[in-house]
Amino acid sequence: MAWFRRRSAPGVRHDKEAEKAGFAHLEHFVQTRRGVEAFLEPKTTVTETTVVLIAHDGEWTRRRVPDHGAARAFGNRMGIPVYDVALVGYPQRMRDFNERRKRGHS
């Protein structure tokens, strides 16, 4: 009897429809905000590779992406910079935005 089972084999791509929906959401965010930058988050034992988009005012959104290459290609296509969050960290404006939301002043 197996106690733990993997949902999918390593390296298997996620549902294509979910992937399309994720990129559509990211594209809409870029098109409806200004000053958007992308921050790549590495795959961990708990989460898949993700990208966080952060607008000029600190508003942000996060979605799973297949890999760093796909995120960088998205950034190139949308004309936005893409940073590795492990190297540069998150911008202060994101923390400020989260603090404003916490206080109810979004």
Rank of each mutant, 00 (worst) to 15 (best):
A2M: 09
A2E: 13
F4I: 13
R5K: 13
R6G: 07
R6Q: 09
R6Y: 06
S8P: 02
S8G: 04
A9K: 09
P10V: 04
P10H: 06
V12Q: 13
H14E: 10
D15K: 02
E17Q: 12
E17W: 07
E17C: 01
K20A: 15
K20W: 10
G22W: 07
E27D: 13
E27C: 01
F29Y: 12
F29K: 00
R33M: 06
R34S: 12
V36E: 04
V36S: 06
E37A: 11
A38K: 01
E41M: 11
K43A: 15
T44F: 10
T44P: 10
T45K: 13
V46A: 15
T47E: 15
T49G: 04
T50N: 09
V51N: 01
V52C: 11
L53T: 00
G58R: 02
W60G: 14
W60H: 15
T61I: 15
R62A: 13
R64T: 15
R64C: 07
V65K: 02
P66A: 12
D67P: 06
A70T: 14
A71Y: 05
A71C: 06
R72W: 08
A73V: 05
A73M: 00
F74A: 02
G75V: 05
G75A: 12
R77H: 08
M78N: 05
I80K: 00
V85T: 14
V85C: 08
A86I: 02
L87P: 03
V88M: 00
Y90A: 08
R93N: 04
R93C: 03
R95D: 10
R95T: 14
F97H: 13
R100G: 04
R101C: 15
K102G: 15
K102Q: 11
R103D: 10
R103F: 05
G104E: 05
